[in-house]
Structures are given as structure tokens and as C-alpha cells.
Nucleic acid binder design. Structure first.
Length: 334
DNA sequence: GGTAGACCTGGACGC
DNA sequence: GCGTCCAGGTCTACC
């Protein structure tokens, strides 16, 4: 099996830094709990390749990337760039230290990096498929998008659909087979914008774009409102805005002890994290993540098809109340 | 600028 | 097993 190694920042820990955001539970990602490794397909110039990512030994040790087909120079560079994006390998130790200076609560565990997708397009689609739907619905939509529009690698792993393929897909197919509902036309429009590298996409991808303009541009995308725009911003490494949703209200009420209407609780949550300034999202997120781990155990022990499907409001409510969790649904959080 | 209602799916619940 | 209710963020129409 062809393989190569990838250097990591001195504090990098695969199990902690992958299992840090719910997208690690969404297809085509597959976190193998017993092996503590991540497998998925990547698309390199339209051609699929399966990758298996492992880290043996201590934090900061290099990653071993096993491939299910050999890669030539350019494809190898493309694969490496996608893996670096997904694993946030550009966020080095000094970057992590900056966050821990603002919020020292996470210094001991070392939490700072948030898992994301190999491409911005996949991050945008994963965000759009997490809106106005419960978590099991997001899980289903991503799995079916990969099964129906994604490609199979030589070893049978799946890739996330590329924009060009999704742009060619009929809305009825997305609705009937991928269960995306009314999101069908919005997803196709997004795919067209990314496939055609629309001006909006170039603005969003440009690291020099100021936060305000980035936010406005994201809001102009189909299917992207205030929650999705703020979430895509954190996925781009802009942590000042909070993607406030019903989970924020639940966190505000159950963990922070706030009372009042949803709008009032949301305002208090936003004000609570305002002192963390441009690190607000990470403080907010790791507080919520710690709460999930208290209820479900460490994230690196969550199986995609069982624990990973259980993040529904009612399950969390029951778990928080100390009741036993119900049997998980057949199919396999943010 | 603020608000009400439609959009669609699937889980929960009652019978 | 079936029917009904409800959760979930975005978008449009309307005031």
C-alpha cells in the first residue's frame, strides 16, 4: 500500500484534533474508534483516492497517510494540501498558544484545533445540510450525497461530491435519493457557483477579505443565513462571530443557567463570549463540546453509526436529566 | 426594520 | 402500524 508521512505541529494529537467538531462524524469521513484512525476518499482533479490517516505514538509525531492507489507528484501535492486543510495543520503551536492566552481553560487538554473538510465547498455544503434539520437528518443527507453523487475509490471508500458533478445533478434526484428536501435547488446553485469559480467564491476564499465583507458575501449565497455564515467563518478560521442556533439556547439554559425567551438567552450567550473577542467561537464551542463529552464520553470513542447519531435535542435532554439513552436510530454533531 | 408563515424530513408520541 | 405533532434555519411577503 503506497504511503507518505506528514509532519505535524509539536502539540498535534490526531484523536483530539479530529474528534473536535461534528463533521468528523459525517460521510465520507470515517473515524475508526478501535484503530484511532480516519479514513475517507479525496478527489484529486476529479479522480478518487482513499486515504487512511494514523498517528502512532506521542503528540507531535508525524502522520502516516496510507493510500489505496499510487499518486504522482502533482496529485500527491493536492492530497497533502487537502489533508493539511482538513486537519488544520497550519495552526501551529504559537497559534494554539494565542488561543490559550485568551482562554486558559483549554491549555491542559490542548484543545484548539477544529476539524473541517478538505475543501471549502464541502464545508459550505455540510453547513447548509445542517440547517433547519435535526442531526440525524444531516447525517443522512451527507451519507446519501456521497453514495449518490460521490465517487468510489479503488478500496471502496467514498468521496464527497465535487461541485461540477453536483451542478449536473437533477433537483429531483437530490430530493428523492439524497433526502435534501427544499434544499435541492440551493445546493445546485451553490455547486454551480463553486464549479464556475464565481466572484463570490473568490472573495470567500481570499484570506485578505475583511471579516465584514466576508460575512456579507456569505449571506448572499443561497441557503446561507446568519447561522450558516458565522459557521462558515469559523471553518475559515475567523472565530469572532458565534453561529447562534437552538443548541446555543440549550447551552445557555442548561449550562450557563440563563432564563427567558430564546432571543433573550441568545443575546446573553453572545454577550457572555464577547470578552473572548476574536477567539469567541473556540471558547463557545469547546464549552459545548465538553458538555457533549460529559454526556457521551470522550469524542474519540464515538462510533459514527451509533453514538454519532444520537445528538438530537431530546436525547441530549434525557441524558442531561440522567436518564439512559434510547436505542440509537439505524443510520448513523456539528 | 421587524415578524409571520412556508419550506421538508424524520423522530417522538399517542392510539 | 398509522396518523399527528414538532424541531430545525432560511427566505419571502407583508406591515
Amino acid at each position: 500500500m503506497p504511503s507518505f508521512s506528514l509532519q505535524t505541529p509539536s502539540d498535534y494529537l490526531l484523536s483530539r484534533d479530529v474528534c473536535s467538531y461534528g463533521y468528523f462524524l459525517l460521510a465520507p469521513n470515517f473515524w475508526n474508534v478501535s484503530e484511532q484512525s480516519l479514513a475517507r476518499g479525496l478527489l484529486l482533479g476529479g479522480k478518487p483516492v482513499g486515504v487512511l490517516i494514523e498517528q502512532s505514538g506521542r503528540r507531535g509525531s508525524p502522520l502516516r497517510i496510507r493510500l489505496d492507489r499510487a499518486l504522482a507528484g502533482r496529485d500527491r501535492a493536492l492530497a497533502e494540501a487537502q489533508l493539511r486543510r482538513m486537519l488544520r495543520l497550519e495552526e501551529d503551536h504559537s497559534h494554539v498558544r494565542d488561543f490559550h492566552k485568551v482562554d486558559p481553560r483549554w491549555k491542559r487538554s490542548g484543545r484548539a484545533r477544529l476539524f473541517r473538510s478538505p475543501t471549502l465547498f464541502e464545508d459550505v455544503l455540510k453547513t447548509v445540510t445542517s440547517c433547519n434539520v435535526t442531526w440525524p437528518g444531516t447525517v443522512t443527507m451527507n451519507r446519501r450525497l456521497c453514495e449518490v453523487v460521490g465517487k468510489k475509490t479503488p478500496s471502496g471508500l467514498l468521496t464527497f461530491p465535487d461541485p461540477a458533478a453536483l451542478a449536473r445533478t437533477r433537483p429531483q434526484t437530490l430530493r428523492a435519493r439524497c433526502r435534501v428536501g427544499y434544499r435541492d435547488l440551493r445546493i445546485i446553485e451553490l455547486a454551480r457557483m463553486f464549479a464556475g469559480r464565481a466572484a463570490e467564491v473568490r472573495t470567500i476564499e481570499d484570506p485578505a477579505t475583511p471579516d465584514e465583507l466576508l460575512h456579507e458575501t456569505l449571506l448572499s449565497l443561497p441557503g446561507v443565513g446568519p447561522y450558516a455564515a458565522a459557521n462558515i467563518m469559523q471553518l475559515l478560521g475567523r472565530y469572532a462571530r458565534l453561529p447562534l442556533d437552538t443548541e446555543s439556547v440549550r447551552h445557555g439554559k442548561t449550562v450557563l443557567g440563563y432564563t427567558g425567551s430564546s432571543a433573550q438567552v441568545m443575546r446573553r450567550v453572545r454577550d457572555h463570549f464577547a470578552p473572548f473577542a476574536d477567539q469567541a467561537f473556540r471558547s463557545y464551542w469547546f464549552e459545548m463540546w465538553e458538555h457533549y463529552e460529559k454526556l457521551q464520553g470522550p469524542a474519540h470513542t464515538w462510533e459514527r453509526d451509533t453514538t454519532g447519531t444520537m445528538f438530537t435535542a431530546s436525547t441530549l435532554k434525557k441524558l442531561a436529566a440522567g436518564q439512559s439513552a434510547p436505542t440509537p436510530p439505524r443510520q448513523a454533531r456539528k
